[in-house]
Design a protein around this nucleic acid. Sequence first.
DNA 1: ATGGTGGTGCCACCA
Length: 262
Amino acid sequence: MPFTLATWNINSVRLREGLVARLMSEEAPDVLCLQECKSPVEKIPLEQFASLGYGHIVARGQKGYNGVAILSRQPLTEVAAHDFAALGHARHVAARLENGVVIHNFYVPAGGDIPDREKNEKFGQKLDYLTQMRDHFIAEKPQRAILVGDLNIAPREDDVWNHKQLLKIVSHTPIEVDHLAAVQEAGDWVDVTRADIPEGPLFSWWSYRSPDWQNADKGRRLDHVWATSDIAGVAHSSRVLRDARGWDQPSDHAPVFATFDL
DNA sequence: ATGGTGGTGCCACCA
């Protein structure tokens, strides 16, 4: 049975409950992974989502910051929720579908403004978070697994609007790209979005500070869909729902989709 | 420069 998955940094699930409902109604992914819910789990509007067919959830939350949730039309079993780098943040949760596929939902730390761990503690925490992700996937080799989320790194030249101009900007620095590549290698993860759409600019985030974001198009691809190599071959129909960035009171991220014939 | 949250009433912190 094919299933479609979407990942979306929602930037407050309570403020944007209506946008989540719209995505559920209009696009109807089987599984919807959210990041930056900015809400304790008990305050997520679950009844509204259940009424739209998303009766299953696993989540980690905290007041005001971070927060990740997996909403599903089919049953889920929570299998993990790691606090990499011991930040005390709700940045990861993982669940298993009935077909055995495990879905990891991540919100990787943004890392602050200065790409130097001596001058900016947050940048060090981001690198440490990625290192511990790598070590985890070395210790526990994932199989039949999908990893999605806001990884806060745009790894490729065509994942940003201007490669040269962003080389010293957090999210596109070589050291972050190297750390992300190490995570990918450790888990034998395939970048499903880029396997599907190999060439050309592809963005999932446009700053709120960018006026005329649509025409200026100064975006970055921060949101990712990966799969282990044993199932990556059955993925297809990847896309970014750019329209959602233009909805009323939008998130600064657009949802990213993929379908798996499993 | 824009926007969300939370604790107080505009400001700090985060992205």
